[in-house]
Design a protein around this nucleic acid. Sequence first.
RNA 1: GGACAGGUGGCCGAGUGGUUGAAGGCACCGGUUUGCUAAACCGGCAUACGGGGUAUAUCCCUGUAUCGCGGGUUCGAAUCCCGCCCUGUCCGCCA
Length: 465
Amino acid sequence: MIDIKAFRDDPERFRAGARDKGMTCEFDRLIALDDARRRILTELEGKRAEQNRISKEIGPQIGKAKGALKSAADADRARLEAELRDLEAKPLALKNQVAVLESELQRIEPDWHAVLLTIPQPPAADVPKGKGSEDNVEIRRWNPAGFDASKPFAANRGFTPRGHLDLVKQHRMVDFERGVKMAGTRHYALTGWGMRLHQAVLRMAFDFMTVENGFTAVGVPVIVKEECMVGTGFFPAGREQAYHIEESKRGSGHDLFLTGTGEVGLMGLHADEILSHDDLPLRYTTVSTCFRREAGAAGKDTAGLYRIHQFDKVEQVVVCKADDAESRAWHARMLGYVESLLQRLELPYRLLQCCSGDLGVKNEDMIDVECWMPGRGEAGSDGVPTGAYGETHSASRLGDFQCRRLNLRYRDEQGRIHFAYALNNTVLASPRILIPLLEIHQQQDGSIAIPAALRPYLGGAERIG
RNA sequence: GGACAGGUGGCCGAGUGGUUGAAGGCACCGGUUUGCUAAACCGGCAUACGGGGUAUAUCCCUGUAUCGCGGGUUCGAAUCCCGCCCUGUCCGCCA
């Protein structure tokens, strides 16, 4: 959520931000609602102040008058009743005025808040402007020894690569048919080496973050209340992407939603809290199952493990002080973790600076990591895919946007309260990461070489098949 | 799922219609005293939003709201009524 005061001071900054992100917002409506809200609030509070003052002054008199009335002789009743009416006239009139203003406010405030939630965080000043992913800017590439992703796979390894669908079938690692039978399209079952590899890479990533990098291991709910989805910034914009559990329809409790990332649980942990400055930075990592409806992705990546409704992900989240330099430093470190992990898995990758048009509502800066997937991309003249980079990680800087929504604050050394800055980044998502892992490490005979760093998590096995 | 009990500030806890944004205690911060520490004493100590001011300072003044959440009664609600949520205990069921 943006700061409404910052918006009042400089609405153009937010208009430009939304333009750069390619989003249209009801800015004029927000201004009108905000003006109306403040006008009513000022008036209402004035009336209430008067109400409070009068109530203190004549409240006790009313009490006394009522008492007198009770024990009064019939002869005095009419006079006492009139006195009481006089006393009550003013507060009664005020009460009615307050009620009118309150109902006006109640009409406006939900809209005001709803529109406010839709205003995106403006991109950071140094984020390149662009329309969409085609305008993202490559930052750097990395290749494992003996492999150059700029050349075809065959030129590197001396044989034609097979896609992960093929490899997975040969080694009976994934059962798509039965997955679909049970849960429908974009579902799957991991079997044998598939499940072992899946667990191995997740565990390796999790250990890497906790043991080597000092992140706090956390387990979080993956079914959460709506306010958790709104707080983390996934709602209202991403409502269609989340599975919705309509508990309220059963007449009990409230609706729940399946989270699409562990970020929701990790960030939700400290919602509505005021932390101490020495609690920061929070460095949390979790491994959680992620659920995505993939609404609007019909026809995209329908085959294989790339785009699926359920997967597991090791996620990293940092909550730091409201300091741009510190946030940027963490962003770099969090990307560094991913790079060393991918290097240990010996997977070619590249980093992309996402342009303004590719940013979501909540981030001011985002860097994607893409792994080279030999089986991806257009088929060449020989019918073999040329290979392509595919997104496996996404590292976001959120500024205070997310913590403002979550109401997650901290007290600084001087005792002043600020909304914290938040960052998040994938550590490793599987089974998507198995695509490059299998495709890059496939051997001519169809076996899969296991990178040395992963072997301890697979009972020391060096290859599959 | 059923039956009771309960939800007050960072924590404990008082408070059943008005002067209680909320006693008291603990914790915390500042000060005095003091070889040091401790103790004692004095003072401070919620958050949000609105309005105003100025040396425009994340500084001052002022108002409003908030005692789980929402609604109601009342001139006036932490206090009374209704609904919901949550917690505890017991019973039932169960990975």
